[in-house]
């Protein structure tokens, strides 16, 4: 019975376009359900994002998909390996960059990379060429003799990425890789990721930055361990269950207080001199609805604008809160 299943699975995966497929993946920590019935398919050679606030189950989901945690229930198949049974087989094929810097701070950059390359069984010659190649791609050649602990956040992050891809994994997991990095470094980091993706690597990245999420090919919005939405950023914005109205006025704080009370309004957030109001899509004329409100006077300018990813995020997770 088991043999039969395994055979089928392998056949399915040879031609499978998916790097990851999970059905009803659930993980409970005593009372808390960190990941709840997560269905997931990640196409090969894409960058897939987990977007969610802290505590939304991003890290737990990644740990489940890397075989570091055993699921309470559900099916996971990563690169043709059935988890958790084939977790050991999977380890050679994946790279994992942890949220916290987890290389040795009391070793130099080069020593860290040498350590990891030995762990992955690279021969002495392979080590040499691979390490010098990685040092130059990740701009660490000058720091190669520096202790990892004494480097800046951006340098540490580049080192961590270099270490995670030293064995050329087919699938790369990045858990909030840019949380300790300035915007300039973040841009360069994403350039590296697109290069890797171009070379055939599938990348799964978790983040709570909207701009970062927008770069992903496909995105899952997580909240309280539940997947709220799942599509490409563009589709998510197009199919958003709300319309965005921008209100320009002088007394924005008061307007916000009054609009937020309306049942059709999902949220209202101030952006400088404007108020961004999310109105339920079922409302056919949102501008008329808002203009009827007594707190808005005639000088207020109202306009329907293109939704951003943040609006998607707020409308998805906001729904969860009101329900």
């Amino acid at each position: 019975m088991n043999d039969l299943n395994d055979g089928q699975e392998k056949n399915l995966n040879v031609g499978s376009p998916f790097a990851i497929s999970a059905q009803k993946l659930t993980r409970k920590f005593s009372e808390l359900t960190a990941v709840s019935a997560l269905d997931l398919t990640v196409d090969k050679q894409t960058i897939y994002g987990f977007l969610g606030p802290n505590g939304s189950g991003k890290t737990t989901a990644i740990r489940l998909l890397t075989g570091l945690l055993i699921p309470t229930s559900g099916q996971v198949n990563v690169l043709g390996c059935h988890l958790p049974q084939e977790a050991n087989k999977l380890r050679m094929k994946i790279g994992y960059m942890t949220q916290k810097f987890s290389l040795y701070e009391d070793l130099t950059v080069k020593e860290n990379l040498q350590f990891i390359s030995r762990i992955y069984g690279l021969t002495a010659n392979q080590q040499k060429s691979r390490i010098s190649e990685l040092l130059s791609t990740h701009q660490l050649t000058q720091q190669s003799r520096q202790l990892a602990g004494s480097m800046s956040g951006g340098q540490k992050q580049r080192l961590a990425l270099a270490a995670a891809v030293i064995h050329k994994p087919k699938l790369l997991f990045l858990d909030e890789p840019t949380s300790a990095v300035d915007p300039q470094n973040r841009r360069e980091f994403w350039e590296q990721l697109f290069d890797l993706c171009d070379q055939g690597t599938t990348i799964l990245v978790s983040t709570h930055y909207m701009d970062e999420a927008e770069r992903c090919h496909k995105l899952a919005i997580l909240e309280n361990g539940i997947k709220r939405a799942d599509d490409s950023p563009q589709n998510l914005m197009n199919n958003m269950p709300a319309q965005v109205v921008e209100v320009g006025a002088s007394n924005i704080r008061q307007i916000k207080e009054c609009l937020i009370k309306l049942p059709q309004v999902i949220s209202a957030a101030q952006l400088g001199t404007h108020l961004r109001v999310l109105v339920n899509k079922e409302e056919s004329n949102p501008i008329a609805l808002l203009q009827r409100q007594p707190c808005l006077n005639d000088t207020a300018k109202l306009a329907i604008v293109r939704p951003s990813l943040e609006d998607v995020f707020v409308s998805c997770t906001g729904q969860g809160m009101t329900q």
Partner: peptide, 13 residues
Amino acid sequence: ERGNMEMLITTPL
């Protein structure tokens, strides 16, 4: 304690 274990257990070690 130093957080290196999380990295080590993802490797084939």
